[in-house]
């Protein structure tokens, strides 16, 4: 009698306690290492903080934000991020093409798949080093190929005109692997019967691609675009390793690179408060773009 009463009161019984206990650790980790810093970032962005001394900070309202929006370098870094961001759509389109070829291939497909995925397991630093060497002005293969065709050597990683090209080329090389793997799996899962039906209706291969293939892989495309946007707006490591201090004229100074410099390099000039403001602006930007992508997805993503 008492037991049933108890059971009624604690609907879940022992299992409830154990369940919370089991499930809790990652949640706890998030609260400590995610949510708390997030609130701190918002708070700091409204303060003036000397060095890293949070205890000597004072609230200054929106001053950091207004300073940030008046800074040329801030707008330039946003532009650099977006211009270099074309790496993402280019990678996805090329990855889709390669995946398509991969799925039509008959001999050695497994080996090709293994090779194509290699860049994914390589660290951003190692990949950046490889490309830094290949884009080297004097000894790199790329300038060597150009000069053998009669062209002139270019300072790929220093001259602002060429930096973007170098970053997009190397970025596409590294960014395609993940897309190829996922697209290849997705293409494989598009039911063959749909293609048969389209053929019977007289659809050519182009029409088939847009009416059968694209809708069939749209969830994968959406997933990759979402991840791609988040990654593209926070691109940093490869710029940091490949370019000395963001290259000439700061042509390779992405938004996160600028944030890094504000907080950890030119702390004296900018400080952690301004860096926090920049991080909030970036985060809001990312959330807005992801949200727009999500809303638009209702028109082009088809779940079965």
């Amino acid at each position: 009698m008492i037991q049933t009463k108890l059971k009624k009161r604690t609907k879940y019984g022992k299992e409830g306690v154990a369940g919370i206990f089991f499930a809790m650790t990652p949640i706890l980790g998030f609260l400590i290492f995610g949510l708390a810093p997030m609130f701190l970032a918002v708070t700091m962005s409204f303060m003036d903080i000397p060095g890293y001394m949070l205890n000597r900070g004072a609230f200054v309202g929106f001053e950091n934000y207004s300073r940030l929006f008046q800074m040329d370098q801030f707008w330039r870094s946003i532009r650099v991020t977006l211009v270099n961001g074309v790496t993402m759509p280019i990678s996805l389109i090329l990855a889709l093409i390669v995946a398509n070829f991969l799925n039509r291939n008959k001999v050695g497909t497994k080996l090709f798949r293994t090779v194509f995925f290699i860049p994914f397991v390589c660290s951003a630093v190692a990949v950046a080093m490889m490309w830094r060497w290949m884009f080297n002005t004097e000894f790199g293969i790329i300038n060597n190929i150009i000069t053998s065709f009669g062209g002139t050597r270019r300072n790929w990683l220093g001259n602002p005109t060429y930096v973007t090209w170098a970053m997009i080329i190397s970025g596409v090389w590294g960014g395609m692997a993940f897309g190829i793997l996922l697209f290849s799996a997705a293409l494989h899962n598009v039911p063959k019967a749909y293609y048969e039906a389209a053929k019977i209706d007289g659809a050519g291969s182009v029409r088939q691609f847009f009416s059968v293939t694209l809708p069939g892989i749209s969830p994968t495309m959406f997933f990759l675009v979402t991840l791609g946007i988040i990654g593209m707006l926070q691109d940093f490591t490869r710029f940091y390793v490949m370019l000395d201090l963001g290259a000439g004229n700061n042509a390779g100074l992405t938004a996160v690179f600028l944030l890094y410099r504000m907080a950890f390099v030119d702390n004296f000039t900018y400080g952690i408060a301004m860096a926090s403001a920049l991080s909030i602006v970036l985060a809001i930007g990312i959330i807005i773009v992801t949200r727009i992508n999500f809303i638009l997805s209702k028109w082009w993503v088809h779940y079965e």
Partner: peptide, 15 residues
């Protein structure tokens, strides 16, 4: 947690 951009945590966690 999966939707929070990592960049926002950088400075405060360091502090």
């Amino acid at each position: 947690t999966m939707m929070i951009p990592g960049v926002i945590m950088l400075v405060p966690t360091f502090i």
